[in-house]
């Protein structure tokens, strides 16, 4: 890896200021960043270490971006009020990575696309060259089935779909400035030079995730399909949260991971359910709606099938 300056930040504003230096990158746990550095996929001049930042007093509705996945998975309040988040955090990566890896790092992580992760390979996001997965003979099996433009990356975060289904917002910090966004608005379409798919301004960082417990958040679920139970990324993940009143769907949020360049809010699924009884018929209709907009690539049509079936399973679990 290229040599870099190492800066340890004491606070988010200080980290944010340090990140104004060109060619700098933030590092939380560094579980993935270190691999990207070794592969020379990123070659920053400076790393700003966030891991020593003192965390603010915890408020049940405010999750620090520096909370580890293990902390989220073990939190009783999260298990009770946000079961989808609990399930996503519990299944992520490996015990070692969950002990170090952070919420913010999970949300801002870089796609697992092998072209993106190989210095020298053709990649739209690294340098604007054609997406290797979309070129003739390219490997597209694990890639997106929705919204494929010049890049076929699938977004790898498992916490993002769970949190989107839970209606989470993110608080961003830049210097002394703060702003709050709906989580789905954190993500931006693939663009050259932006590996992480997040619409952060220079020096801006995710500081916290804001959640509100509700009957809907308590009736939430996260399911994922992956090839290996021991350390793997999901090929498809589905998160759903449903509030039922008098047997009908009063409010619903559904999101999917690993199927599009960004974590994808499934508005077509929500529309198919809203106001209807949550029964086998409406669930079948909603699952059908989930794949209407899917446009699989040469070898990943099976992801649309799996998405359909995971949607059925997720919604079946919420029938009560």
């Amino acid at each position: 890896m290229r040599s870099f300056a190492y800066l340890r930040a004491e606070s988010f504003p200080a980290a944010s200021a340090a990140l104004e230096t060109p060619e700098s990158l933030p590092k939380a746990a560094g579980t993935d960043l270190l691999d990207l550095l070794k592969e020379r996929v990123v070659e920053p001049a400076a790393l700003v270490d966030l891991s020593r930042i003192e965390r603010a007093q915890s408020d049940p509705g405010v999750l620090s971006a520096l909370a580890t996945l293990a902390e989220l998975a073990e939190d009783e309040g999260i298990r009770r009020d946000f079961p989808a988040l609990h399930a996503a955090a519990r299944q992520a990566a490996t015990p070692q990575i969950r002990n170090r890896g952070t919420l913010g790092g999970n949300l801002c992580q870089v796609s697992r696309c092998p072209y993106l992760r190989r210095a020298g390979a053709s990649c739209f996001k690294r340098d604007g060259s054609p997406c290797g997965a979309l070129l003739p003979g390219g490997f597209d099996r694990t890639h997106a089935i929705f919204d494929v433009g010049p890049c076929a990356c699938a977004h790898p975060s498992s916490l993002a779909p769970a949190l989107i289904a839970l209606g989470a917002r993110v608080r961003l910090v830049r210097g002394e400035e703060r702003r709050v966004l709906a989580l789905e608005e954190l993500y931006a379409p693939p663009a050259p030079g932006r590996l992480g798919d997040v619409a952060l301004r220079p020096g801006e960082l995710v500081e916290a995730v804001l959640l509100e417990a509700s009957p809907r958040s308590r009736n939430s679920v996260y399911l994922e399909m992956r090839e290996r139970e021991s350390f793997d990324f999901a090929l498809v993940s589905v998160a759903a949260a449903v509030e039922l009143r008098e047997g009908r769907v009063r409010s619903v949020r559904v999101a999917c991971g690993a199927v599009a360049p960004r974590p994808r809010r499934m508005r077509e699924v929500e529309a198919a359910l809203r106001g209807r009884p949550l029964d086998a018929e409406s669930i079948a209709g909603a699952a059908d709606a989930a794949r209407v907009a899917a446009r699989p690539l040469r070898s990943n049509g099976f992801k649309a099938t799996i998405l359909h079936r995971l949607c059925v399973r997720a919604l079946e679990e919420l029938r009560q």
Partner: peptide, 14 residues
Amino acid sequence: DARTGDMLNANLLD
């Protein structure tokens, strides 16, 4: 990769 001949999963995750 059929186009470049490079191995796409030469690590222990992929």
